[in-house]
Amino acid sequence: MIAFGILAIVALIGGIGVIVARQPVHSALFLIVNIVALAIFYIILSAEFLAAAQVIVYAGAIMVLFLFVVTLLTAGKDDEEAGEELSGQRITAGVLAILAGGGLAVVGVLYPSQRIQLGLPQNFGNLRGMGDVLWGPDFVYLAAVALMLLTAAVGIMVLNRPPRKKADPEARLKERES
């Protein structure tokens, strides 16, 4: 319980830090803190495979790509905040946040939840458990998601392919002259 409390605070600090930090790189760092805290949550639930997967996939791969882009785009550290491009964003965001929070609160009061099921299914989140879920009844969904992601990746490569080079050197020469 103490561990849960500490981790919850760390995860919250990470989450809030992401939106409060001025530097994009700092935001990314806070997000990593949040991700690692979640991984430790999984370990507390003895879901060690989920924890390892969380760190390898999110902290080890996705966030590295985030940082790659962020460091490339914000190479010069600029402490001054850029002016907002769209006016009134803060007010709109605040109003929407209040509406969403209020809505959730109303739903929570109207439909008091059933007690959350205590105890975890067998093999929860370890290698065998995850394997049973992914390769058992849910295999079709897994395959569908995999196909969808592959299609997206191929699509991006097709859309971003460099213009085809002209094979004929004379035509290229003419083009350069004109």
Binding site: A39, E48, A51, A52, A53, V55, I56, A59, G60, A61
Partner: peptide, 8 residues
């Protein structure tokens, strides 16, 4: 996998 997680 833990080793991979840390090294990543």
């Amino acid at each position: 996998l833990i080793a991979f997680a840390f090294s990543s």
